[in-house]
């Protein structure tokens, strides 16, 4: 049992070590993020300037900015590039090395990638939260909502992984990943509320989105952090919903992978 735990912890550790090897990568990420934030600042400023009231769809300009800045930090933390990686390794045939590890492929990947997420959480999400908090003078509460936020990030990361993993598995059939992955990214970013707060969606679309797993990735953690009006009960309910989607998508992805891996023809020599 102790050994098993060490087996898992060691993979987390290696993910952390790996991520820290690429210092320059972290800097460029930060730089890219700043440019993105400048763009959305002016974009939303224009949107609010054109609106007749200060509050649009129940959100002020400040609310929107807090939401979007945190959403982008969260995106950089949780994004894993699983799909790209899987696609590349299926294409080159390197996937065979991953399949020969003495533990399941999914477990192995999820653990190694979570290490990266931990590093990003510390190096990018925490500083962003601090800055947002200082600038807005308490834009979100410092209370038990932080615990819910942390839990929701963990679940959301795994859910995000499973969605990516599902799309990556498609590569076993198509041997090309570009188009599918671009489509996935657009869908996830839009329907998860990472690029536009869900409150700005037309009502019908909002309803549809709440019955899809994507909003559980970014929208749920963010709401749990920002929205002070939520009761503890509804917060637990939201975490439950997240868990529900994680289990469902996880099972589907796992089954899909099991079927696919049986019919693979591993490329190259």
């Amino acid at each position: 049992m102790k050994k098993k735990v060490r087996k898992y912890l060691t993979l987390l550790r290696v993910g952390i070590l790996e991520e820290m090897q690429f210092r320059l990568g972290a800097v460029t990420k930060l730089f890219g993020n700043i440019i993105y934030l400048i763009i959305i600042y002016f974009l939303w400023k224009a949107i609010f300037a054109g609106a007749p009231t200060e509050v649009v769809n129940g959100m002020t300009f400040e609310d929107t900015m807090i939401y979007l800045v945190l959403a982008s930090a969260l995106f950089y933390t949780m994004e894993m590039y699983v799909t790209w990686d899987m696609g590349r390794r299926i294409k080159s045939g390197d996937i065979v090395v991953d399949l020969l590890r003495p533990m399941g492929y999914i477990k192995f990947q999820v653990l190694s990638l979570s290490g990266n997420t931990i590093v990003s959480a510390v190096t990018s999400l925490l500083p962003t939260m601090l800055i947002v908090y200082l600038i807005t003078g308490g834009g979100f509460a410092l209370s038990y909502n932080l615990l819910f936020f942390a839990a929701a990030i963990m679940i959301g990361t795994v859910l995000n992984y499973f969605i990516n993993f599902f799309v990556g598995t498609i590569c076993f059939y198509t041997e090309s990943i570009w188009g599918i992955n671009i489509m996935k990214e657009v869908i996830v970013l839009l329907l998860s509320g990472a690029s536009i707060p869900l409150a700005f969606f037309p009502e019908t679309l909002q309803k549809v989105v709440y019955y899809l797993p994507f909003q559980a990735i970014y929208n749920t953690p963010l709401k749990l952090l920002i929205d002070n009006s939520l009761s503890v009960q509804s917060r637990i309910g939201m975490l439950g919903g997240q868990l529900f989607w994680t289990v469902v998508v996880g099972c589907i992805s796992y089954a899909f992978f099991r079927i696919s891996v049986r019919r693979i023809t591993v490329n190259g020599g």
Partner: peptide, 22 residues
Amino acid sequence: RSQLWWALPLIESFKLLRDIYQ
């Protein structure tokens, strides 16, 4: 192909294999 961790010093890969093969 390599099963080693490309970004890490070799000894880290060995230690990692030690743990995952128990």
